[in-house]
């Protein structure tokens, strides 16, 4: 099902120096809690995004640890103060070890 998982990000393309901008992220993901059982009574294995990190020019600026109670298609947003142009790198880590990545450049004038 990995091909169904698509990250979406929304970052302003440009910002003024020292401006505080809002970054929005959403990833389509089932966030299977590991608590549910299928029709045969077998436990459906846990499969969640357990970690999400954001780095700006290689330096980490945001990290979130996600838990099984978080609903499907987790949406996370945060604020960032911009001091220089660069690129934001987003990474979501899945329980199965795969990571989903997205990057976006931002110009600070």
């Amino acid at each position: 099902m990995a091909e169904d998982i698509k990250p979406r990000i929304r970052v302003p393309q440009s910002a003024k120096k020292d401006e505080i901008i809002e970054i929005k992220t959403l990833i389509s993901h089932p966030m299977e809690s590991g608590q549910r059982k299928d029709s045969q009574g077998k436990t459906i294995p846990r499969k969640i995004i357990n970690k999400m990190t954001v780095a700006f020019n290689g330096k980490q600026v945001f990290e979130a640890k996600l838990e099984p109670a978080i609903s499907a298609n987790p949406y996370l947003s945060f604020f960032l103060k911009c001091t220089q142009s660069g690129s934001l790198e987003f990474a979501w880590t899945d329980d199965d070890g795969s990571t989903y990545k997205a990057t976006q450049a931002i110009t600070v004038a």
Binding site: K6, R8, R10, K24, L26, S28, A72, N73, Y75
Partner: peptide
């Protein structure tokens, strides 16, 4: 539309 998970289906 960004937050709306229904837009994933539209995609």
């Amino acid at each position: 539309d960004f937050e709306n998970p229904g837009m994933l289906a539209v995609q």
